[in-house]
Design a protein around this nucleic acid. Structure first.
Lengths: 266, 266
DNA sequence: CGCTATGTTGAAGCTACTCAAGTGGCGTGG
DNA sequence: CCACGCCACTTGAGTAGCTTCAACATAGCG
């Protein structure tokens, strides 16, 4: 399992600018919701997330140019959709604060959580290829996203090598991330999946300067189970077993990792 | 299941230029191996795969410019690696003929097939984000690939809007494809997975002008099972059951689909 | 022609699922 | 303030589906 974990865990540290896309949910515990009174204008140069977001590998001059295409931002309330499957694709979205899940719908009505996003990550890349979004993006808590019109971003990429490289890396790292999830789903047992999920969240949280041990899960057991390809009861049982074995401490959505090495060995 | 199938099946027809990346293996049945005596120079303008490959949405003038960055091609014998996980990333590869699997290695030694590629599809996108390949790409038969140095392609993308758009769509469609596989792995039972696999191959084959019904699988039952997250015995049993029910006819690696609608309903 | 790969089939076992009952936290309203 | 209902979560018992182990069949290749 650690190959998967390493890839997931080390990516943010090694090249934060390339760490985007739907992800095992991380989130900023105790992160305040965005201030209620803000202008709908924004810019990257002053953004707290600039180190791990779109402009991650840009210098100040380049980041100012990026500001010219990121005009405004949008608030999305908990449970609301940023976009829905089938919606026309116009923009990608950089998550300023909060967290999202992406949900793929089956023809037969069943739904599958395909990713969790947290602050600094980018949503909407799935819409580029068909000009229509392929999934729903639902806010797990009150959240704010920067709106990045994609045709403007493309135009700027033709002028800025550094931004072009960043966009390519962002897209590629999403491909690599999904490969990791495929590996997890196809090869790991329930315990390994849950352990990998917890460690991934831990790593992403840590990359943002938060605790590696104390997790505040924003999603339900059912959403975790959907993402990990198992039933919510199995998620719950697995967490209970980890707790019984002294690996973690569970208090509802608050999970403390007590033995990171043991979790990694599972 | 058909949401997944539709997405997989219709993509090539609707926008062949965006249909790339690791895929449920399709391949060209009865396709001859590439001629043994060919120059290692090549160009897109005269390539038989130009309609579904890199230059899919380019006009003739643009395609000539693409030729300037695709200098040569490489032969890869069955079982050999085009690249291995950890190799430095220099180029992406357009598959001229033959077929590949990509394999993710676990730390603990187990391996997982993460995709199958066929003629006209593009390999190596996973290497962009870290400058190192994330998986092994192994030829399932004697194959030929066009070598596309990525920094040259990036430079050309800054000059050619149409090519830039193509590369972005290619990357995005790979993300969407992997989402579909995640859905398959997380939500579908063994029968549904195998049916989806067969129909996906059928559709991709059909998009290349080959039979929708007669499949010539290049991979083993074990490779199919690895890709679909199940054991080779289960793949074999499922194929036998489909045959017993009159849905398909199995003769080793030759599979004939007798009832496409019924397979889709599974 | 025989060897090794790959594929098929059967029987037993185990993992995760289903169904069901019960617990705990939180917001609402009396 | 507490009672209530709702929802998420936990836990147990029985079961289904896939895996494991094993034997055998077939195909490809020297």
């Amino acid at each position: 399992m650690s190959a998967y974990l390493q890839q997931q865990a080390k990516a943010p540290a090694a090249m934060p600018q390339a760490y985007h896309g739907p992800q095992l949910l991380d989130f900023l515990p105790l992160e305040p919701t965005p201030p209620a009174t803000v202008s709908h204008k924004t810019n990257c140069s002053s953004c707290a997330m600039r180190a791990i977001c779109m402009g991650g590998n840009l210098n100040d001059a380049d980041r100012s140019r990026l500001d010219t295409v990121i005009h405004n931002w949008r608030m999305v309330r908990r449970g609301e959709a940023l976009y829905r499957a089938g919606d026309a694709f116009q923009s990608i979205y950089a998550l300023r604060s909060g967290s999202f899940k992406t949900v793929l719908a089956h023809q037969n009505g069943c739904e599958q959580v395909s990713g969790f996003f947290l602050t600094g990550e980018t949503l909407g890349l799935d819409g580029i290829c068909t000009e229509h979004h392929a999934c729903d993006a639902i806010a797990l808590e009150d959240s704010a996203v920067c709106v990045i019109p994609f045709h403007l971003l493309e135009a700027l990429c033709r002028e800025m090598r550094s931004l072009q490289q960043h966009v390519h890396r962002m897209l590629s790292s999403e491909i690599v991330r999904e490969s990791g999830v495929m590996l997890l789903l196809a090869s790991l047992c329930a315990e390994q999946r849950v352990a990998a999920f917890l460690l991934n969240i831990s790593a992403r949280q840590h990359a943002r300067g938060y605790s590696r041990r104390d997790l505040a899960l924003r999603m339900t057991r059912e959403e975790i189970g959907s993402y990990l390809g198992m039933k919510l009861e199995t998620v719950s049982r697995t967490l209970s077993r980890f707790q019984r074995d002294g690996l973690i401490e569970v208090k509802g959505k608050r999970v403390t990792l007590l033995d990171l090495e043991a979790l990694d060995r599972i």
